[in-house]
Design a protein around this nucleic acid. Structure first.
Lengths: 141, 141
DNA sequence: TAAATTCATAGTAAGCTTATATGATATGGG
DNA sequence: CCCATATCATATAAGCTTACTATGAATTTA
């Protein structure tokens, strides 16, 4: 039940792009420096974000990345699903794709469905803008 | 963000012991047959449950297992924590053990804390008794 | 003593995680 | 045209986790 570094770094990456947006391209090198993360690893992660259109890339000198839309248009859930895959805690509750043959007499499936819903309720209701606007010290859980 | 088979099987195991309780020992062989799971794998899993006192074991012929307490005394959370380890989605939110040096200027930590709380709210409020009482077909999410 | 059971430990194939390494490709500025 | 600076594309790899299987010892009842 862990979120991998890939998913966490992807969120930090998006937040960094939002925080440092000046309208110009932001180089991944700068992001890596600010976030203290491996550039090469971030390159792999941002590939996912660009290919799905969340981030716009510009090659060459003075190239870099920018968010395609506003920070409030991206939820944490969108980013995690892209990098982590499905957020379903067990395969048998993610739609009809991985239906379990025991589904009809499985009495535990409702537990996993409830858990899945709780997870989605959190990650689908926090946006990158929410994270940016959240001061470092003044949040209350 | 997946719950492993170990955790899921442990829950099914506990539910099976609750459902088939007659006051006598229940052999793991029977559980494995009913649940269609590997006996040897279940042996490893139930070791965790016996060592922490959730299940009482009796060796020898006519030996087997019984729940130490009533089904309503065991939450899904208790069982999952035992088998899966911490349910924290990231290490830095599980108490003070794995504190992150970036903690004070990390703006994403509140996301993981909120997620952690949502997960706990679900698993700590469903007991084995709830699962047993939940008919196979008549639950509503 | 034999059968049935739990208990203990070791092994293992496959896949995932978390990167690092190498180099190709594209762009702007001098 | 050349060079520095970027992104883009693959390959590699150590270490860990998952999901078991295997072997056999210890215990208890009939």
């Amino acid at each position: 039940m862990k979120i991998s570094t890939k998913g966490r770094y992807a969120v930090r990456l998006m937040v960094d792009l939002a925080q440092n947006n000046t309208g110009e391209n932001i180089s991944l090198k700068d992001v890596a420096k600010r976030q203290n993360l491996s550039l090469k690893y971030l390159e792999q992660i941002i590939t996912l974000l660009t290919k799905s259109g969340y981030v716009i890339s510009t090659r060459g000198s003075n190239g870099g990345y920018r968010l395609a839309q506003k920070p409030e248009d991206y939820t944490v859930g969108m980013i995690l699903r892209l990098t982590e895959g499905s957020l379903a805690p067990v395969a048998c509750v993610e739609g009809d794709v991985n239906e379990c043959p025991r589904k009809d007499d499985c009495c535990t499936i409702f537990v996993w469905k409830k858990l899945y819903k709780a997870i989605c309720d959190v990650v689908d209701n926090i946006t990158i803008a929410d994270i940016v606007n959240m001061g470092a010290d003044n949040y209350i859980i």
